[in-house]
Amino acid sequence: MRPFDYQRAERLEHASQLAADSETLPLAGGTNLIDLMKLQVETPQTLVDIGRLSMGEIAEEGEGLRIGALATNTATAAHPRVRADYPVLARAILAGATQQLRNKATTGGNLCQRTRCYYFTNIDQPCNKREPGSGCGAIDGVARLHGILGTSPQCIATYPGDMAVAMAALDATVEITGESGERSVPVRDFHRLPGDTPEKDNVLEPGEIITAVTLPAPVSGKHIYRKVRERSSYAFALCSVAAIVDMAEGRITRADLAFGGLAHKPWHDPRIAELLVDSEPSLALFDKAADLLLEGAQGYGENDFKIPLTRRTLTAVLCDATGVEA
C-alpha cells in the first residue's frame, strides 16, 4: 500500500467534503478497496473511514424498504423483509463471496465493487480502466471472465457483483448525497458502460457518497437468482440471471430480469419484459427473448461461450418461473 492519511468521518457532510478531493476515497467495509490498495491498483492519498456513520439501518419506507449504505450484505440477506418480500435479493447476496466477506461488505461498497479483470488488478499490465490510455490487455488476452454486451474497444471488463443484479431486476434506487445536495439514481442507471472512459465505473461524482438503496413496494411473482459458476461456491459468475416473473391465466404478467457477468454493469434490457409480458410462455418465446438479449453480443475468443451459456441460463430461469417443460 502507498502511505495514506487516515481520517474518520464523524458526519456524512464531513465525509463528502473530504471525498470531493480526487485523491481521497471513502472506506466502508474495505473488502474490495483494501484488496486493491495492496495491489496499488488504488492509491488514495487520504482514506475517509465512513464505516461508523449511522447508515446501516434497514427500515420500512412506505411499502418499500430502505437499505442503508452501510448495512452489511449479511444484514441485508438475513433481514426478514428481504427474505419474505425480496427473495431475489437475498438469494443474490448469498450467492456472492463468502460469509466472512459478506459480514464486512456493505451495500454501498458492493455497488462500487470494481471489476475482477486480471489486467485491471495487475499493475504491470495495460488497462484503460486503471490507467487511461495504456490499452486493454484483455481484448487479445485472457478474456474468460469478460463482457459480451456493451463492451468497447477500450474495455471489456465486467461488473462482478451479484447484489446489484438483483437490485436492477427489482428496479431499486440508489440514494446519493454530495456537496451539491442529494439525488436518486435508479440502480439500472447507476453503473456505466465503458465507452471511451472505462475508468468511470458508475455515475458517482467526486464527493458523492451512497447513503442508501431503496427497494420499491414488493410485487407478486416468483423470484429467482441463478448464478452459473465454475466452483459450486465462492466464484464469480460466468453469467447470472435475476428474475421476478409472475403469471396469470396462462400468460406472463411480469418479467423483470437483469443479468450479471455479461457487461460493465448489471444488464437490463426493457425490451425483454415488453416481449414476455402478456404472452403465453413457451420455449419459442424464451428463444426470442434470448435473441433480443443477445442481439449485438460479441465474444472475445475465450468468452465466446457466454453467448450460448446465457441463452441456456435465461431459458432455464424462464422455464423454472413459468413451469414450461424443456
Binding site: G30, I34, D35, L47, T74, Q100, L101, N103, K104
Partner: peptide, 19 residues
C-alpha cells in the same frame, strides 16, 4: 486469516487495524 470481531467472522487481512 479468519478471526471473530465482536463475534462476527471476518477476513482480518482486509481490515485495517485502525478502523
Amino acid at each position: 486469516c479468519t478471526v471473530l470481531v465482536n463475534g462476527m467472522r471476518i477476513n482480518s487481512c482486509l481490515a485495517l487495524a485502525v478502523t
